[in-house]
């Protein structure tokens, strides 16, 4: 029973954080709140028995992604412009319709924590029962991750590598150095604001503050 109350408390905190993200216009606060959201969800993962997931979420969500978003803010701007009313008006029915469809989808789902749900009776008993004899390591999550589903994890590692290469191609200085040399030869000075002159002479360099 205390577990239920902890879950309810964590959920209320999560909902409050999400609402605060909706309301806040200061992007620095938004990024920090998203870190708080990740940390709270890590706590919820612990109460749902997913300790490995909680560990990852705490390290990744509250650590790395907050740092990356702050880095983006330093390179862009920290204020969100005013939101158009028509956009908000249109968003509401879309969201309500999606929510209704999703809730309809859950109506024939098995109950929370039910031991005879299909998900619990398919292959999980094999993993839990045979890991001791087939793999011989105590952490079943690691056994499934690295051995039973090794192909899967190889693919995920390749995806992470590819995303990293993509980031380097988009914003790394590696390819840029050569281009800047070319520009210097032509005698043009690069605009520190980056844009503006290249986009047909409009001067909206602080357009997002408006």
């Amino acid at each position: 029973m205390p577990e239920t109350w902890i879950n309810i408390f964590l959920f209320v905190m999560l909902a409050a954080t999400a609402l605060a993200v909706v309301r806040t216009r200061h992007l620095f606060a938004v990024v920090m709140l998203s870190g708080v959201f990740s940390l709270l969800s890590a706590l919820l993962f612990v109460t749902l028995d997913a300790v490995d997931v909680a560990f990852t979420e705490a390290a990744v969500g509250a650590g790395i992604s907050t740092v990356l978003m702050l880095g983006t803010l330093a390179l862009t701007s920290r204020r969100e412009g005013p939101v158009s009313a028509s956009r908000q008006l249109w968003a509401l029915p879309i969201v309500v319709l999606t929510a209704a469809a999703l809730v309809y989808g859950t109506l024939d789902m098995p109950g929370f924590g039910s031991p005879d749900a299909p998900a619990q009776r398919h292959i999980a008993p094999h993993y839990l029962g045979e890991t001791a004899s087939e793999i011989g390591i105590p952490n079943v999550v690691t056994a499934v991750l690295a051995s039973y589903r090794g192909y899967d994890t190889l693919g995920e590692t390749a995806v992470i590598f590819t995303a990293g290469v993509g980031v380097l191609l988009i914003i790394s200085e590696l390819g840029r150095r050569r281009r800047r040399d070319d520009e210097d030869e032509e005698g043009s000075v690069r605009n520190p604001e980056g844009a503006g002159d290249r986009i047909g002479g409009n001067s909206r360099s602080d357009g997002d503050i408006r």
Partner: peptide, 9 residues
Amino acid sequence: PLPHVLILT
């Protein structure tokens, strides 16, 4: 453990 593995990655 299966959802844990999928979500972890």
